[in-house]
Design a protein around this nucleic acid. Sequence first.
DNA 1: TTGATAAAGGATAATGGAGTCTATTATCGA
DNA 2: TCGATAATAGACTCCATTATCCTTTATCAA
Lengths: 147, 147
Amino acid sequence: MSIIFSKGCEYGLQAVLYISTLERDRRILIKEVAEKLQIPVHFLAKILQQLSQKGILKSYKGSKGGFVLGRSPEEIRLIDIVNALDGMSIFTECILGFPGCSTEHPCPVHDKWGKIRTEAYEMLADETIADVKEKSKSKIASLGMDS
Amino acid sequence: MSIIFSKGCEYGLQAVLYISTLERDRRILIKEVAEKLQIPVHFLAKILQQLSQKGILKSYKGSKGGFVLGRSPEEIRLIDIVNALDGMSIFTECILGFPGCSTEHPCPVHDKWGKIRTEAYEMLADETIADVKEKSKSKIASLGMDS
DNA sequence: TTGATAAAGGATAATGGAGTCTATTATCGA
DNA sequence: TCGATAATAGACTCCATTATCCTTTATCAA
């Protein structure tokens, strides 16, 4: 087993991307997101909750409630979502698991992995959900199809 | 939480790197590796066992037993160890967790992530444990020091 | 042949992520 | 004001990873 992001983080990324493809002011129900993306509702509820607390989403309780983006899509970067849900440890910890991996005491792949990790970081930090809106739309549109 | 490799895979990589820094024909005890790298012995035993079954290590039972490399260090690539312990799913699965992510139905970061993932793969596939032997030595030498 | 050694292997616990369930709180509309 | 709605919040279950323990098997040396 190897993973990049936790399941919750994957779900969170998908959910925010989905919401970003809809009308900006429409309040989206957890249920709708869960059904569209095939995510367990109660689990998704937790995740959207965290994203609300971090300001990435904004939630409204009660009837006519639901979720909207917490700020404009140009101001939500993929890294914000990752940071909110999984934190930044993936960008700081040694890929080989060695303790104290640093410039002074680098692991055998410290430099090469550092370069790749930086690229990954920059990708996530450069891309806003506005940037990928159209790609998100077509990917989500493909989800219903028989695989 | 986000991880690249499982704990077992990290330990396996560290262990093989450690063994590679020692005399080629010396039989290394699990206990020695575990103490040097601060890995739970019994857990490490399982991992070295798997690596033996895959031919990356060779084991000898009984007194004067222990582990040696299963083939020459020039023929053991980091990716071999990863493949033996975690498999290749990290190089095939969608980073956002979308099902059916492919050229036909790419996720929003399919191309960019694909490029980074390929670089990561190539790094692990290029580096043999012979290549990183000296770096392994100095990293492992630094482990005892007070952090 | 026997005792000591060390890996193999199976059974069992502990931990944490993933997922479920239910009660509570806030909001809307009638 | 009341009932319906929907997010919030906490407790709880489940399961895979991580870790531990113990018995068996193989090997060496005396």
